[in-house]
Design a protein around this nucleic acid. Structure first.
Length: 958
RNA sequence: GUCCGAGUGGCGGAAUGGCAGACGCGCUAGCUUGAGGUGCUAGUGCCCGUUAAGGGUGUGGGGGUUCAAGUCCCCCCUCGGACACCA
C-alpha cells in the first residue's frame, strides 16, 4: 500500500486575492473573533420593552461522544443559525445558543472503557465539540450554552425534582398542586383517608404511605426493566422492541424492584389533548398519540367463587362490551394477584387435556406456568413468536349478561400492566382470542354478523371477524337485546345497561405507564433525598431543603456500576454511590435537630437535564431562581388565549419523538401548574430535520472498507482494485464513512460547508452526502468574491453606476423570493436564487455597487464570514449581521412582457411575448393566429379556447 | 402485521392544477495554466431527424377527474422509518 502524501501547491498557482481555502482560513477565524469581541449575538434576558419582536430558536442539544461531530450533526444547527441570522436582520431579538447534554449512560460507558473519570472524559468531549462548533461560525449567544453536568445547572435540576416530589395531581382542579394542600385536606377531614380513620390516628409511616401514593415523584415496588449487562434499570422507552437495551444492546428482564417513578400518567389526557394546539409535524403527533394510547371502553365485573367459598369479582377491561354475549372464556395475566384465590383443588370434570399443561392439579399447572413466564426474557417472548400459551385455573366465572359459566385461564398474552390485567375472550371477534381458542380447543360464538361470503360454521373460519361497524346478532337476555344494532350503538346500549345494573361502567385506559426515573449509575444527578435511619419516620423519603442544594456527586474510587453476566436474571442492581459510605451516611438538621440519615444512592436518568435546559438558557447566571420570570415570559410566554407558548422553533431529529419530547412536556406542565412558568408547553413549533446519509462500502467478505479510498469507474466501485458494494445509510465510525466538518473546512471553508449542507435539499428529508458535490458551493462563493474583488490586486471592482433594468428586476425578484424561502425554511431554493443572481452579475461588464451590496446582505445568513469580509471591503464599518434584510420594490417584480404559452390539446405548440395586462380576447386572437397553432391544427376546427391571460392559452381542437 | 413518510435525468434536487427537470454535481467539447483533484465558456432527460427546422416520448405501475395532472381521487408495487399480543 503506497502512502499518498498530498503535495502542497505552490502559492503562486492561485492569484493572490482569489477566494481559496487558504484565504478562508484567514478571514473565518477573524470574523468569529470579531463577533465574540463585539458581543454581536448576545441578547439581554429580556428587553426593557417587552413587546419588541423576538424569536427563541432552539436546537436539540448534542450529547458529546468521544467520536466528535461528523457532517450529519451540524445540519440542524446550520439551519437554525441561518434562520436566526435572518430573524436578526428582520428586526427580531434572537435567542440562539447551544448547550451540552453530558450526563448519561454513553458518557459513562465511554469513561469506563477508557478508564478515566466520567467528568474528565466528558469535559474533554465537550471541549472538542465546542471547538468543532465554533469553527462553523454560528451566531450563538455563547454565554448561555450551559451543560447539564455543571453543578450550578444540576442544582436546579434537583430543585425541579423536589417541586415534582412535593406535588400531587388534583383531579378536581385538573392540575398539579403542592403536596401541602393535600395534607391539609386529609388533616381537616375534607378528604377521607383510604381506610376512613382520622388523619391524626395514622402513624407517621401510615401518613407517609398515603401521601406518597399521591406524589408525582414516588417510590414503588414495580415490575421494571432490569438490564444486568448495564447494571441498571431502564425505562420502557429505553427498551427496544426485541427486548434489549437501546444503549449497548443487552438483554432486559422484568423484575420487581423498588424504584423512583414519575406519575406522568396523571397528565396523559392533557399531554394528548394539547397536541392539537402545537405546530408539530403530524407524524410526530401521531407517534405521541399512539404512545399515550388512549382507549375508551368499559370495565365489567365477572363473579367467581373462590376456593374458600367466598364470592369474588374479576374485573376486566374491554373496548368491545357489545360482544359480551360472545365471551366464551376469560384470561388473566399470570401475575394477576387474584389468581391464587381461585385456583381449584382438582381439575373439574370435562377439563380438556390441552388445558392442564400435563399437570396433575390446577395449582401445579399454574405454578409451573408462572415460573416459566417469569424466567422468560423479553427476547425469548419475541423469538417464540406469537404461539399462544396458558393454563386453565380449574375455575369458572359467570358471564353477567347470560349467567353462563366461562373457564378462567392464565396466559402471558394478557399483560398485567394494561387495563385490569384481565380480559373476557371473544374468540370469534378478536384475533388473539381466536388463536388461543384454536390452540386450546375452546368454543366460539358469533355475535357480530359476518359478510355473506363467510362460512356459516365458525369452525371453518381461518381468522376472527373484527368489524367495528357490522351488526350485532344473537345477543339478548330477558332485559336487553342488541339484536341488529350496529357496533357503536350496541356499545352505547350495553354500557348503559351495565352501568344501571351495577356490573360495569364506561372507562378510559392508557397505554402510557408511569415513568421509571431512577438509574443505578454514577454519572447522573444525585437525588436530593434522604432517609432517616431511626425514629418513627425511619425509611421515609425526605426532601433536602433548597438551602442544601446543590447536592454534589461525591468523588468515588470506583465509579463503574456493578454489571453482571448479560443473561444473569437473578442479579440485583447495586448503585455505585452506595459504596461511597462517607457520602451516604450523614448527620443533618432538617428542622428537627441533627439526626442520622442515609442518602438516596440512585441517580437520575439522562432525560432529567434535557427536560428543562431550554429554560436555563434564558437566564443561565441567575442563582436565585431556575429561570428569571420576566425572561420566561418574554421568550416563551403565550401571545394569545389559544397559544400554548413555548420556544418559537425547536429543531432536531425525529428519533426523539416520544422519549425526550414527552418527558419535557410533562415536566413543563408540572412547572406550569405550580405557577413557575407562563407557557403551557415547552415547544410551540417543532421541526424534524432529515438524516444525512453517507455512502459506505463493503468488500466480498461484507467488511466495511474506508469510504474515502473507494474509486468509481463506470458506475462500479473499487477499493484497492477489489470490487466493493455501495450502501447508503448512517454515517459512523464503524461504517468507515465519517466525514468531519473540520475536513470540509480545511479543504474548502466553513462557509462552503454551510452553503453545501443547506443546498442539499429540503431540510426535513434525508439525503445522501457527497463530498465531491460541495465544489459547486465553493465555486459560488468564489464567483461572488470575484464579482466584487479583483483576484490579482485585491481592489474592490464594483462601480457606482445605477444597475440596469434587467439587473434591477432580477435583484428585486431575488429579494422577494429569498424572503419567502427564508420564512418557509426552504433554504435550498433560497440559495439557488442567490446563485442565479450571482451568475447574472458575473455576465455584466462591471458589477454595480447597489447590486453587490444587496447580494452580500442576502448571502450573509448562509455564508456569514465571506459576507462580513466583502461588506467590510465595500467600505462598511459595522457588521453585516445587523444589516437590514432588503425589501423588494414591487415595481420590479412585474415584467414588461411575459411569455405566453400556447397549447393545442394541452401540448405546447408556440410561445408569444405579450404585455402582462393583455385582454383575454386579444390574447385569444393572437394565439389562434400563431404559426404553431396553425401548424398543429392542420385545418381542424376549434372546439374551445381556454384563456388564462397573460400566461397561457389552450386551444382544444374539434 | 399495523401506522407514517417517500418514489421526477447518470446523481442531489426544482416546479400557487397551467412551459417538467430551476440550481448544483457529474459528463462532453473548447479556452486558460507552469500537464493532471479547486480557473473560464458552451452543451447536456430519452428517442427519431446525418446538421438544422421539427416531431415523438417522459415524473414507480394501472385506472379516473379535468380544456390541462409530477401535483387531485381510487387500486397496486418498491424503498425508508416507527410501533408491535395494549383487550
Amino acid at each position: 500500500m503506497s502512502e499518498q502524501t498530498p503535495q502542497p501547491k505552490p502559492a503562486s498557482e492561485d492569484p493572490k486575492y482569489r477566494y481559496t481555502a487558504g484565504l478562508a482560513a484567514d478571514i473565518e477565524p477573524k470574523w468569529q473573533a470579531y463577533w465574540a469581541k463585539n458581543h454581536t449575538f448576545e441578547v439581554p434576558n429580556h428587553p426593557a420593552d417587552m413587546s419588541e419582536p423576538k424569536a427563541y430558536i432552539l436546537d436539540m442539544f448534542p450529547y458529546p461522544s468521544g467520536a466528535g461531530l461528523h457532517v450529519g450533526h451540524p445540519l440542524g444547527y446550520i439551519a437554525t443559525d441561518v434562520l436566526g441570522r435572518y430573524k436578526v436582520m428582520t428586526g427580531h431579538h434572537v435567542l440562539h445558543t447551544i448547550g451540552m447534554d453530558a450526563f448519561g449512560l454513553a458518557a459513562e460507558q465511554y469513561a469506563v472503557e477508557h478508564g478515566v473519570h466520567p467528568r474528565i472524559s466528558t469535559e474533554r468531549n465537550i471541549a472538542r465539540y465546542r471547538e468543532q462548533i465554533q469553527r462553523i461560525g454560528f451566531g450563538h449567544d455563547t454565554r448561555r450554552g450551559v451543560s447539564t453536568i455543571d453543578v450550578p445547572f444540576y442544582k436546579w435540576t434537583q430543585w425541579i425534582f423536589l417541586q415534582i416530589f412535593d406535588s400531587w395531581y388534583d383531579q378536581e382542579a385538573d392540575r398539579a398542586r403542592p403536596i401541602a394542600t393535600l395534607i391539609a385536606q386529609f388533616a381537616d377531614g375534607t378528604r377521607a383517608t383510604p381506610d376512613g380513620r382520622a388523619w391524626d390516628a395514622l402513624s407517621a409511616q401510615e401518613q407517609a404511605a398515603v401521601v406518597d401514593s399521591f406524589r408525582l415523584a414516588y417510590i414503588a415496588e414495580a415490575p421494571v426493566n432490569w438490564c444486568p449487562g448495564l447494571g441498571t434499570v431502564l425505562s420502557n422507552e429505553e427498551v427496544t422492541a426485541d427486548g434489549r437495551s437501546e444503549r449497548g444492546n443487552f438483554p432486559v428482564f422484568k423484575r420487581n424492584l423498588r424504584q423512583w417513578m414519575m406519575r406522568i400518567t396523571e397528565y396523559a389526557d392533557r399531554l394528548l389533548s394539547d397536541l392539537d394546539r402545537l405546530d408539530w409535524p403530524e407524524p410526530i403527533k401521531l407517534q405521541q398519540r399512539n404512545w399515550i394510547g388512549r382507549s375508551e371502553g368499559a370495565r365489567v365485573h365477572f363473579p367467581v367463587t373462590a376456593v374458600d367459598g367466598s364470592e369474588k369479582t374479576i374485573e376486566i377491561f374491554t373496548t368491545r362490551p357489545d360482544t359480551l354475549f360472545g365471551a366464551t372464556y376469560m384470561v388473566l395475566a399470570p401475575e394477576h394477584d387474584l389468581v391464587d384465590s381461585f385456583v381449584a383443588r382438582a381439575w373439574p370434570t370435562g377439563t380438556k387435556p390441552a388445558w392442564t399443561g400435563g399437570h396433575a392439579t390446577p395449582a401445579e399447572a399454574v405454578a409451573a406456568y408462572r415460573a416459566q413466564a417469569a424466567a422468560k426474557t423479553e427476547v425469548e417472548r419475541q423469538t417464540e413468536g406469537r404461539q399462544k400459551t396458558g393454563v386453565f385455573t380449574g375455575t369458572f366465572a359467570v358471564n353477567p349478561v347470560n349467567g353462563e359459566g366461562v373457564p378462567v385461564f392464565i396466559a402471558d398474552y394478557v399483560l398485567m400492566g394494561y387495563g385490569t390485567g384481565a380480559i373476557m375472550a371473544v374468540p370469534a371477534h378478536d384475533q388473539r382470542d381466536f388463536e388461543f381458542a384454536r390452540a386450546f380447543d375452546l368454543p366460539m360464538r358469533i355475535v357480530v354478523a359476518p359478510p355473506a361470503d363467510w362460512p356459516q360454521d365458525v369452525a371453518e373460519w381461518t381468522q376472527s371477524y373484527d368489524s367495528k361497524t357490522a351488526q350485532i346478532t344473537d345477543s339478548a337476555n330477558d332485559e336487553i337485546s342488541l339484536e341488529g344494532l350496529p357496533v357503536p350503538a350496541a356499545i352505547r346500549a350495553i354500557s348503559e345497561w351495565l352501568q344501571n345494573k351495577g356490573i360495569g361502567e364506561g372507562t378510559v385506559t392508557y397505554r402510557l405507564r408511569d415513568w421509571l426515573f431512577s438509574r443505578q449509575r454514577y454519572w447522573g444527578e444525585p437525588f436530593p433525598i434522604v432517609y432517616a435511619v431511626d425514629g418513627p419516620d425511619a425509611g421515609i423519603a425526605r426532601a433536602l431543603p433548597e438551602s442544601m442544594l446543590p447536592l454534589e456527586l461525591p468523588e468515588v474510587d470506583d465509579f463503574s456500576p456493578k454489571t453482571f453476566e448479560a443473561g444473569d436474571v437473578t442479579s440485583a442492581p447495586e448503585p455505585p454511590l452506595s459504596r461511597a459510605a462517607d457520602w451516604v451516611n450523614v448527620t443533618l438538621d432538617l428542622g428537627d435537630g441533627p439526626r442520622q440519615y442515609r442518602r438516596e444512592t440512585n441517580t437520575m436518568p439522562q432525560w432529567a437535564g434535557s427536560c428543562w435546559y431550554y429554560l436555563r438558557y434564558l437566564s443561565p447566571d441567575d442563582d436565585s431562581r431556575f429561570v428569571e420570570a420576566e425572561a420566561e415570559k418574554y421568550w416563551m410566554g403565550p401571545r394569545s388565549a389559544e397559544d400554548t407558548g413555548g420556544v418559537d422553533l425547536y429543531v432536531g431529529g425525529a428519533e426523539h419523538a416520544v422519549l425526550h419530547l414527552l418527558y419535557a412536556r410533562f415536566w413543563h406542565k408540572v412547572l406550569f401548574d405550580l405557577g413557575h412558568v407562563t407557557s403551557a408547553e415547552p415547544f410551540r413549533k417543532l421541526f424534524n430535520q432529515g438524516m444525512i446519509q453517507g455512502a459506505s462500502y463493503t468488500d466480498a467478505r461484507e467488511v466495511y472498507v474506508p469510504a474515502d479510498q473507494v474509486e468509481e469507474i463506470d458506475g462500479v466501485f473499487y477499493y484497492q482494485g477489489e470490487k466493493v458494494t455501495q450502501h447508503f445509510g448512517k454515517i459512523g465510525k464503524s461504517l468507515k464513512n465519517v466525514v468531519s466538518p473540520d475536513e470540509m473546512i480545511d479543504e474548502y471553508s466553513a462557509d462552503t460547508l454551510r452553503i453545501y449542507e443547506m443546498s442539499l435539499g429540503p431540510l426535513d428529508m434525508s439525503k445522501p452526502w457527497d463530498t465531491r458535490a460541495s465544489i459547486g458551493s465553493f465555486r459560488f462563493l468564489q464567483r461572488l468574491w470575484r464579482n466584487i474583488v479583483d483576484e490579482e490586486s485585491g481592489e474592490v471592482t464594483v462601480t457606482g453606476a445605477e444597475p440596469d433594468e434587467a439587473t434591477l428586476r432580477i435583484l428585486h425578484k431575488t429579494i422577494d423570493g429569498t424572503r419567502n424561502d427564508m420564512e418557509g425554511m426552504r433554504f435550498n431554493t433560497a440559495i439557488s436564487k442567490l446563485i442565479e443572481l450571482n451568475n447574472h452579475l458575473t455576465r455584466l461588464p462591471a458589477v454595480p455597487r447597489a447590486a453587490a451590496e444587496t447580494l452580500v446582505v442576502l448571502t450573509a445568513p448562509f455564508a456569514p464570514h465571506i459576507a462580513e469580509e466583502l461588506w467590510s471591503r465595500l467600505g462598511h464599518t459595522d457588521t453585516v449581521a445587523h444589516a437590514a434584510y432588503p425589501v423588494a420594490d414591487p415595481a420590479y417584480l412585474v415584467d414588461e412582457t411575459v411569455t405566453c404559452v400556447v397549447q393545442v390539446a394541452g401540448k405546447v405548440k408556440d410561445r408569444l411575448e405579450v404585455a402582462p395586462d393583455i385582454a383575454d380576447e386579444a390574447l385569444r386572437e393572437l394565439a389562434l393566429a400563431s404559426e404553431g397553432v396553425q401548424r398543429a391544427l392542420e385545418g381542424r376546427g376549434v372546439r374551445t379556447v381556454i384563456v388564462r391571460a397573460p400566461k397561457l392559452v389552450n386551444v382544444v381542437p374539434a
